[in-house]
Design a protein around this nucleic acid. Structure first.
Lengths: 338, 338
DNA sequence: GCACGGGCTTGCAACGTTATAAACCCCATG
DNA sequence: CATGGGGTTTATAACGTTGCAAGCCCGTGC
């Protein structure tokens, strides 16, 4: 026997399909007795609405698309964020689909694909740039979305971001407090919005604290770990090592630590390292280093919450969340459970 | 103006909807000239078939569901595997949706949900047990699936697995070659199939090589990192430390390394550590430790390939891949690009 | 000239759902 | 007794696609 449909349910209860359909949605225009009878019959024969049919009829997909950049493949990034997102969506009718994009291809393609084929009711992506083509396109088409990261036009769309400027400020304060005078800050790829946030904060806070903050020209947080490693080795062996490295990324931080040790220097003793922590991995790294935490699990949850409200029609101006850096790692974040 | 449909295209070209539909699929019963005219018209007005309608009509969803266990949240696990999977599916009509399941809830639920609502054409899951409820259910319903990991009934379904027995054998050979006599092996949670594979291999290879292989009773690879850490510290401080720890998991390996260092011992000098490597993170850990590689990217690709063939109706007997351990890390695996 | 058939095209119905408008019944009101 | 109007239910028509059976046209063979 085949899957039960509204028709099956209509025959079983004696009501018309329409009545059954509306009864199942608790339409107040349907008598309470009817609603109850239909509901119990539905439960009994195990009726579940066909999503394809609903989707065809209503145009709603009940799907949230998470478009993730290949650059986002840092430790646990997608995992934590996805976990937070789908936890937030639990209990709603929404599912998450992940659409990774080809490293080489046009970042617009997966998004256009989703919008044009109506593959989702809303979408989330990260790696925003100040003038972001994807944001322009989505605003133009009116498709609901939330970005992880801001843009120059951030007033007009929903976003959730980590306060990377504040992160740098906090980090430099800590380093200055430890007596550091020169700091090397690894910046994100220059086309990303938060590269600016970090740079500006570094300039301001550096001046205020009397720190000399420099940035490697040949490497960013998106560089391969080996490049970062080799750069640090060159700096140390050429005598131009700073008092501290500030690494807003886990893999770069590991690369820096490895480089320092490979040069025979002591991490924390000779050269300090301060990292942005997004997983629990730094609890297991020796020597321990100082970190400031970004809760990606919470970010994923925020993104989900904001997107649902955006889909519901709430104006984007209210759907903007800036997450403050957390001084301590919160083990409740369930980042790496193994 | 609204989204172009077959109707739009029919009006534009002067053919009937049916003709247009078949022309777009290169049906040989349609004149070549017609096919070309339709194709070019479709390109011109940007027609894309509506997936909801196709799905309703044909019953096919063009979706692959990846159901991931919370235990799988080791470094890069989901990321690499998903990346391999979606790379494999690129160019096909299939999308991937990720369905994480609630840590506490019934693992059957997401799967029943997918099958009953026809949310996908096939599914993939991992963390198999020898007698796996999910496998039984899926076989019963005839739903196409591939597992990552084997079961006792593995002859009857499609699977892709890593040769964890061989991994242990190789690892013990290496350790024996280095002069180790006693080895502590951290095993997976005992309900998982590959716990058996590892245990059996440890017994056999241990006997052959003259090694004493023991297993912690109070901790598995699924234990929290802090538990593993504390266990190792207890072993070392109580004088019952082995010559080597064999850790088929990255986070546990990091925990063991941290514990050894916290006791003032030298990793590699006093106590060897051999890990299963699934990401590039160990290239950045000092001191360097010996590893044997499991290519999760390749596993994801395999799973995708196998599932597509299974959906195509190929009998499951042929759709079984055992991946051999790789002695060296292949950087091409693109595990962590940052 | 008529039937046949091959090459190509078309109309119709259906997949399961929901929006819309219409219908029904009964009771209160004028 | 007709009118009207709550409260409740129903018929109909889509949404965009594809399977099926039928149709058309034209050339070929008897």
């Amino acid at each position: 026997m085949s899957k039960p449909t509204l028709k099956t349910l209509a025959e079983a209860t004696g009501f018309a399909q329409t009545t059954v359909s509306r009864a199942l949605k608790d339409d107040p225009k349907i008598a309470i007795a009817t609603r109850q009878r239909v509901a119990s019959a539905a439960r009994e024969i195990g009726y579940v609405p066909d999503r394809a049919a609903q989707r065809l009829r209503t145009g709603r997909t009940n799907v949230i698309a998470f478009v993730s950049s290949p650059h986002a493949e840092i430790i646990g990034f997608r995992g934590s964020m996805m976990a937070g997102l789908s936890e937030e969506l639990k209990g709603t009718a929404y599912h998450v689909t992940m659409t990774p994009y080809d490293t080489d291809a046009n970042p617009m393609r997966p998004i256009q694909n989703i919008v044009r084929n109506r593959l989702a009711d809303g979408l989330i992506f990260s790696g925003t740039q100040p003038r972001d083509q994807r944001v322009d396109y989505l605003l133009e088409t009116g498709f609901p979305f939330v970005t992880h990261g801001r843009t120059d036009g951030a007033g007009g769309h929903a976003w959730c971001d980590y306060d990377n400027g504040r992160f740098v400020e906090l980090a430099l304060e800590r380093l200055a407090g430890q007596g550091c005078r020169t700091v090397v800050l690894f910046r994100p790829a220059p086309d990303l919005t938060y590269a600016r946030h970090m740079t500006e904060a570094a300039v301001r806070a550096g001046a205020r604290l009397g720190l000399t903050v420099t940035h490697p020209r040949s490497a960013t947080l998106s560089s391969r770990a080996s490049e970062i490693h080799d750069l640090v080795v060159r700096q140390i062996t050429s005598g131009s090592a700073p008092d501290a490295y500030l690494c807003p990324g886990e893999v770069p931080a590991l690369a820096v630590i490895a480089a320092i040790e490979d040069c025979g220097c002591s991490v924390g003793g000779d050269i300090a390292v301060l990292a942005k922590q997004t997983s629990s991995v730094f609890d297991l790294i020796r020597p321990r280093i100082d970190t400031i935490y970004e809760d990606l699990h919470a970010a994923g949850a925020s993104l989900g919450r904001l997107l649902l409200r955006r889909i519901d029609g709430e104006p984007p101006e209210r759907l903007q969340h800036l997450h403050a850096p957390q001084e301590r790692f919160r083990p409740g974040g369930r980042l790496i459970t193994a």
